[in-house]
Amino acid sequence: MSGQLIEQIVNGVILGAIYALMGAGLTLIYGTMRVLNFAYGEFYMLGGYAFLLLTSAAGMPWPLALVLAAVLVFAFAAVTAAGVVQPLLARPGWDFSTIAATLGISIALQNAALAIWGERFQSVPYMVDGTLEVAGLHIPYQRLLIVAAAAVLIAGSAAILSFTRFGRAVRATAQDREAARVLGVPADRTSILAFAFGSALAALAGMILAPIYAVSPWMGVPLALKAFAVVVLGGLGSFRGAVVAGLLLGIVEAVGVALTSSEWREAIAFAVLIAVIWVRPWGLYGVERSVR
């Protein structure tokens, strides 16, 4: 029983790493643009398909496919942001219209994928084979790769935010858009790039998870819902909050599933979310004024 529990916690950490990565990308977009990107799961899905097509159809080695697919989704997301989302921000009621528009993009992309690639669940081969056996636990290397990749991507993003010119522009725009513009920060372009950057993180999450979960038009939906829960739990717009909340949610979910059954997995996450919003709507690292 306790061995099972430990295994669940290990699974929780793996899941949590993905949630953290997904949350980080989403919160980055919200932070700079104040837009809740409901099409976020579809960028995850597009990442999965781009990776699948590049590796299996084009026969590309997976590390190269990973990079190229991320670039492709980045470009697509940038076009989406510049063409649809950014123009809405200048109009009254933007907080609603951007949510509605991204919901529309989400459902359109899902069904476009369905029309193009069919409803078949397609599998992607493991990037690394073998299983780590330690202390009675069996952990496939692929799962360890997921955790490692998520950690590297999160740390890399944090470094970009902290130390690069783009990162400073993103943080300044997020904290005070007008003040940033006055100092010469091209806030619109920065937001579009942040949108694309966050979406590329989702795409990368979709790629490293593809060998475990199959690739399908709807693969992004559960993950996106989790990412929403994560960013609210962490405090919308807080990068650190998303990472911490992602890990926490992964573990809470895994333990919760161990105590009940897997069909309640999603319900547990959303119940936690609603409970947190009730007690502390601004989340772990958010600021109270952000929800008023």
Binding site: A169, A172, Q175, D176, A179, A180
Partner: peptide, 17 residues
């Protein structure tokens, strides 16, 4: 209108963006 969670130094350096 300083960037509230940046340090003073970071704020000032933003002026040289």
């Amino acid at each position: 209108r300083l960037f509230p969670t940046m340090t003073v130094r970071e704020n000032v350096l933003m002026g040289a963006f």
